[in-house]
Design a protein around this nucleic acid. Sequence first.
DNA 1: CAGTTTTTGGCAAACGTTTGCAATAAATCG
DNA 2: CGATTTATTGCAAACGTTTGCCAAAAACTG
Lengths: 356, 356
Amino acid sequence: MNKNKDVAGEEPSGALMADVARLAGVAISTVSRALANPGRVNEKTRAKINAAARQLGYTPNAMARGLRVGKSNIIMIILPGSLYYGASQIIPQVLQSINKSLIQGGYNLMIANLDRDEISERHILDLAFGGSVRGAIILSSKLPEVDGRSLANSGLPIVSMLLDMSDAGLQSVITNDREAVRDVTAELIRLGHRQFFYLAGPEGNYHDVERYGGVLEALEAAGLSEGSVRRSGGHLDYQHGFDIGVQAADDFAKLTEKPTAVIATSDDMAISFVSRIQRTGLSIPGDLSVVSFDGSPVCEFCSPPLSTIKQPVEEMGRAAVDLLLGAIDQRETTAAVRTVIHSELILRESIGPTKN
Amino acid sequence: MNKNKDVAGEEPSGALMADVARLAGVAISTVSRALANPGRVNEKTRAKINAAARQLGYTPNAMARGLRVGKSNIIMIILPGSLYYGASQIIPQVLQSINKSLIQGGYNLMIANLDRDEISERHILDLAFGGSVRGAIILSSKLPEVDGRSLANSGLPIVSMLLDMSDAGLQSVITNDREAVRDVTAELIRLGHRQFFYLAGPEGNYHDVERYGGVLEALEAAGLSEGSVRRSGGHLDYQHGFDIGVQAADDFAKLTEKPTAVIATSDDMAISFVSRIQRTGLSIPGDLSVVSFDGSPVCEFCSPPLSTIKQPVEEMGRAAVDLLLGAIDQRETTAAVRTVIHSELILRESIGPTKN
DNA sequence: CAGTTTTTGGCAAACGTTTGCAATAAATCG
DNA sequence: CGATTTATTGCAAACGTTTGCCAAAAACTG
């Protein structure tokens, strides 16, 4: 009913810049400058203002500032639909590193989505076009797009992470997957392996293409035919990475000619695959060598400890943020749109020579 | 130099409500009402306005609205400093369920990391007092507080999750840890176990107190002395949960009288503990039964598959969001400040009877 | 010391919405 | 049919900042 302050007591809604100005005996504009642009105001008045601000516990209103300057200080991260697929193990680390870097740059991190249904897409676009966010980091190959509006032409700086989307003109921070998997395949070949089993994630996925490509390259270099690798997975979507490994173990059981080495595209699927395979009496690495992707900490404690190609997420997060903030500050990084961070193969006991 | 639109072409900064109004031939206020409060405007004009809005690809500016109504639609989640400790395995699921519920309620999720440094504390407080966020969900036992300002008296609705902070007056969504661990301990006693090994997380932690308390209750009920349980861990902070398990395995090796059952307070530590223990030649559950907390999916694929007390994160996330939005909408849930969600014990092969 | 430059601080107009109030048109009532 | 209510729309004032512009004061300059 009454919109006035009922009690003369403390304002629940916090002190305003005007309050600070009054207390310090200066104009509002001076306060604003003192706080944001310290050079432009006298040392003494600035001290007075700072004291007043502290005394009142003043915190500038972010939305008012944002509205005025026409810019938000929020960056959104767009995650691939199902968190449960593969990457799940490293998502927290990704968030952690991105957030840390962002905060240092004065930005905040908002999670745009965890699903990729139409609701989420619309939501993402609302964030983008509603001026809520200043830039985006995307971990999915699909740019949100629904009735007319598309993230691509939102004018928002976007950096892609983990996936190479430089074709789409996006700055991309990626790992040298192809090379890494080529090297590890070559190593397996050196150890005597001739028949491979490849566990795919979502098919056609950039990761899949690159990684599978790496396998083929190594095979070719060794004079082996493309037929020496069998694929599993890829046909299922939206599931735990673990499910893929389980399914793959079934597929494996049905093979008449058994591969001796497995290359999995995520740790999750490798872990469940190994678990199921061991149950059938096969031993690792005795009967079967296994290597996977991601570098999840848990791999060290599996039995046997799993070899894994570590995704350098910390570094990637930092790089992505650097690129994004660079783009925001207009320091045109017209240079390479592709930033490659090197993966590191962590060699553990899940890999060994073939029996004979 | 010139702040005018240089080209007559399309506005890069998007259509404004004024544009929609002009195109539809109505006043700005009518547009606003048509979009937000459909009942208060004529059917026909509303159609016209909607058409105009769609044609222009109009998206309302979130900050302008936020400023005007004095409210943001962003909820922040405050994650504990080191993501790596214990909970790491379930964080993605927590985020998933919280975000889903929030989006349904028209809110956005912002991540605020609570590292132990002053920077992040200040950051969180800026978010709270700067009007950027409308509420908070906190997964840490420490409320940010720095020079005068404290999250506690920010006036912001706050819900604590996983940790019981009802003493601090916060609505808390927790699991019945004490009960769950009491039950599982009782079950272990029934299986013949008399000597226990307890792997603690950060000491004094609510989780620790409750869970250890549960163990003691079960012992007492069975007439066993408090001396039948040995503790490990707790003295280290800031590490992967895995490190705790490794350390605990060392501690275990030094014990002269070996416990036959292990209760770990996170899956991570159980996994690394088991790995190290098995390496010393002990078998699980033959020589040692193991149960842990969290319900990480990976437990199913360990060898042996690990028994774990599942944290019902989906449900907890939903509950936390419900409480928070309830508090925001002032529908005073003056009732219980503690919402207990029931954990579920997933029994797998890591638990068995004692040998004799 | 008059003239010129440099600092410093205030005024007021934005930024893009929402919303109280008032005005008009339409509908209902007695 | 006049009087009252109700539905529909517009006007203009907020919301709390930032910032262009100008004036006053201070600091130089010759």
